[in-house]
């Protein structure tokens, strides 16, 4: 029997110092951030923290009693392994509250060199069941797992009941339709993937063009989508393009541009005993972080006080839809018919 956790951690994205402050000021219990290189899975231009900024951010959070989690969640190859071990050394000396890792080699290194450093298994570690979690717990003493967004609500419950460690789930944000940590669609087309370079469908490979057939988006030359005049164009993430599978009509063959939104099932997640709920979006603006953190903080407070009478307010849903991909939302795999 899992006890209802009345102190679920709200974990918010910080792609910059202003975003970090927006998260902390609006009710985040913890923020997660990365260094300014390919050691993290949001290795985007103009984003992330150098050491001095990380120091400022950590001080800001710790002064207010909040935590900072550092994402080192890409898979280092031998040519550049030192970049990841240096990042671990920095994490340790900066005094982050935990590092979020995916790579077993790096986890082994961390347990040997920094036995007191708290380890979380990143969503990029692809642990979708109790045996996989047990492996990382036994070998590397991980204290928390972030679940990939491919499990149904029932499967999440089953994992929580049998997990030896805390379970963190995604609560809101852009949706990976593929198992995280196991997707090479981006590197197949651009040479860079989340695992290898910390990017998916990288901006430098994107090209927009206006043609007689409409506005077109390309990724390394490959046509991802074509928009009619009245359509709003989305970022050309590979899995959210329109392609042809059977016949001549192009459709969203993998996933529509939409965002995960768990407001509707928050009471179930709370009762299941999740330890933390994560908001996606380190690549988004401080304004996004502020708005989403406010809504999720309010919802989580309301839900933890009285899960049985909780219902998501219409203005929360509207506020989140406003910042969602495609201005729409889904429960993704948590919702049975989706599977």
């Amino acid at each position: 029997m899992v006890a209802v956790n009345s102190n679920i951690e709200l974990v918010c994205p910080a792609g910059s110092l202003p975003a970090l402050r927006a998260a902390i000021d609006n009710g985040a219990d913890a923020v997660y951030l990365g260094f300014r290189d390919d050691t993290n899975a949001r290795n985007f231009p103009g984003l992330n923290f150098d050491t001095a900024e990380a120091r400022k951010g950590i001080d800001y959070a710790h002064d207010r009693g909040r935590k900072v989690l550092l994402a080192l969640n890409t898979y280092p190859q031998p040519q550049h392994f030192e970049r990841w071990t240096q990042a671990l050394a920095q994490a340790d000396s900066l005094g982050v509250d935990a590092v979020i890792l995916a790579d077993p080699g790096l986890m082994q290194y961390a347990t040997e060199q920094y036995p007191n450093l708290r380890l979380h298994l990143s969503v990029q570690g692809s642990a979708t069941n109790r045996h996989a979690i047990a492996f990382y717990h036994q070998h590397f003493n991980i204290q928390r797992v972030v679940l990939p967004r491919v499990l149904s609500l029932r499967q999440v419950k089953s994992v929580i009941e049998s997990s030896p460690v805390e379970v963190e789930v995604f609560g809101f944000g852009s949706l990976c339709v593929m198992v995280e940590g196991r997707c090479a669609l981006s590197s197949y087309v651009t040479g860079e993937s989340p695992n290898t370079c910390g990017v998916c469908s990288p901006a430098k490979a994107v090209r927009w063009e206006e043609t007689s057939q409409g506005r077109q988006s390309r990724l390394n030359g490959v046509l991802i989508d074509r928009y009619q005049k009245d359509e709003s164009a989305g970022y050309p993430t590979l899995c959210k393009g329109r392609f042809k599978v059977k016949g001549d009509t192009a459709f969203y063959a993998m996933e529509e541009p939409t965002s995960l939104n768990t407001l509707e099932i928050l009471p179930e997640l709370v009762k299941m005993g999740i330890a933390a709920i994560k908001i996606e979006g380190r690549q988004r603006s401080p304004a996004y972080v502020k708005r989403v953190t406010q809504v999720m903080r309010t919802a989580l407070n309301r839900c933890q006080q009285d899960p049985d009478s909780y219902t998501p307010a219409a203005d929360w849903v509207a506020a989140l839809d406003h910042v969602s991909e495609g201005r729409s939302h889904t429960l993704g795999a948590l919702h049975r018919p989706w599977q």
């Binding site: 198992v179 997707c183 090479a184 669609l185 197949y188 063959a253």
Partner: peptide
């Protein structure tokens, strides 16, 4: 290249 909880063959229909 990738795996999902969603079936893309079913989705095509």
């Amino acid at each position: 290249l990738s795996f999902s909880a969603r079936c893309f063959t079913a989705r095509a229909d």
